[in-house]
Design a binder for these strands. Sequence first.
DNA 1: TTGAAAGCGCTAACAG
DNA 2: CTGTTAGCGCTTTCAA
Lengths: 356, 356
Amino acid sequence: MATMREVARAAGVSIATVSFVLNDTKPITPATRLRIEQAMADLGFRRNMVARALASRRSRIIALVCPFSEDRMAPTAREFIIGAARAAKEADYHLVIWPVGNDGDALATLLGQKLVDGVLLMDVQMDDARVDVLRQMDTPFALIGRTRDLSGLHYIDIDIAASIRIAMDHLAGLGHRKIAFVNGWQEHEGVAGFGPYVRSEGDYRKLAEDREIKPVVLHCRRSVRSGRDAAGELLAAAPETTAVVVGDEAAAPGLIAELTRRGRTVPGDISVMSLLSSVDVAAMCNPTLTTVTAPGTELSRLGVEALICLLDGSRPATPMLRTGVLALGESTGPVRGSGKPRQRRRLPSTAPTPRG
Amino acid sequence: MATMREVARAAGVSIATVSFVLNDTKPITPATRLRIEQAMADLGFRRNMVARALASRRSRIIALVCPFSEDRMAPTAREFIIGAARAAKEADYHLVIWPVGNDGDALATLLGQKLVDGVLLMDVQMDDARVDVLRQMDTPFALIGRTRDLSGLHYIDIDIAASIRIAMDHLAGLGHRKIAFVNGWQEHEGVAGFGPYVRSEGDYRKLAEDREIKPVVLHCRRSVRSGRDAAGELLAAAPETTAVVVGDEAAAPGLIAELTRRGRTVPGDISVMSLLSSVDVAAMCNPTLTTVTAPGTELSRLGVEALICLLDGSRPATPMLRTGVLALGESTGPVRGSGKPRQRRRLPSTAPTPRG
DNA sequence: TTGAAAGCGCTAACAG
DNA sequence: CTGTTAGCGCTTTCAA
């Protein structure tokens, strides 16, 4: 594989000149530029990323830091990763995957290697040790999600409040007045609090209050089993409920299954919808789930763009929140006896919401 | 951040000596070694990966090449990626994600950058252009999946024949004699033939023949919708069928839904099971799917290990096939009238099968 | 057992 | 506009 030196020799110029055309960093006479480009083509020259990285002190590699655990955001995570990788590629960056624990130790070690120019943190907790590590090692980073303290942060996140509102509006539009909320939950291995879970409950209560709906909140873990349990609790605690919003995509199918087993029809007796699950999963449920989709690919793409923006130093990327989009399935329907027609259209995608 | 030079100065040795202890590449007096280690600790030294890569001509980075398209193996892909990343990390390698098309062009460009030491190819086609590119650029690589021609290849793959056998055995054990097969299928954008799809049909036919079962093969694409269509075709083509094996995890829920809509109960009238879908997806179906699981994490982990084995040059990793494991759900049951009790145990995991 | 020194292939002053 | 040159931080002969 040809090196710059060989290209330079072939084109009869100095190695610096080759570098200049390559990086477009100095004006070059069209003639010489042409000679050089010719030589590069002839020799099949490809610039060596590693050497470039060492000399320029920028590797053009960014890391996607994802949770080490298997259990979170299973189907959505894939979209995150692929979306991020593609966005990175388009900006001529590489994406490495760093599965690390929530304490920032492993992260610190990795950062010490000076391999990456910046980091994209996914699955951010309200108080996240990794953020401290990043600050301390003073590595550029962006978040997918956001911590409690937002000062000086570059983040892209789901607008959970708006997403819940969409869900509630949908159900209210179908005549429902007894809407319960099953929140995802997690409190283990130093997982202080996953943002969407933490925020969503308050948002639900607020919305319920505004609409004079008596709030009913249950919790579930990230499993089908847990959804079944929630169904039991729901029927015990608030049997008059006609609609449920489930904050966890894994639990939703379990909830439906158990409701059915106990003789409730979905959506006949009770409507069920999930919050921020992927369309894939929603489509696989039976009945198919109505959901406010998680804009997975978009989030990670925006995250990568924000980070690269930071690295390439133009402007410091505005933090932004993205809202999910209502995807209608067969798991929600008009409240019994309302006589309302089945709603069956797909809402238009919302545009990014710039955030002060 | 301290460099080796500073460590050397602090320890009163030459930079070479520091390198020797770091890489354990030459014998060093315990005393000096200690001094050096002390200095490294004091200065918080971390070896710069980029410099190391340039000097040693090994970056300790490997690439996972995944299909550019969104639509294949959705839920399983995540496991692949995370599994690969973790395996890489354990071997002190980094994993970059390269989403590239099936023609090898983008891949060739990426390889030219000399960033990675080797490549792990997933989602391998029977005749795969990317393999040619890799050979030609003479980059070490391993496959997850396998091409038609296996000469000189390092691969890890699903033992599709064995997996189908497990499925058929399960159904036969429940008394079924009319077992149809719905194969996943794909023939677009140069996707010559996804191994498991191509191989599975023949395997099914062979097994059916052995058991004197009349083979019924249908096809579906990777969507819920497509599964519904397949259900219609099935009832039209072979209404006497009592059990179906579906080769695509996305289609299975659709198939069940449509069978149900047409008045068939699952598993009462007809048992349905899927081949090589992830447990996650299987659990989310309603009824939960019986499936022969795809050993996603394992495959990618083995793939990474095989590749690194190749790179670190010890032995050239034996190709191996992994068999899925039967995971019982509620979508399969005894054939109507057989009076057989419902089978409800989980088979033991099979060990890796070395392959000549 | 240790050190000196020549690179790895490229970038980026600085000089002309 | 182009060339010279000094590194980037580490590995790795070769010699001591």
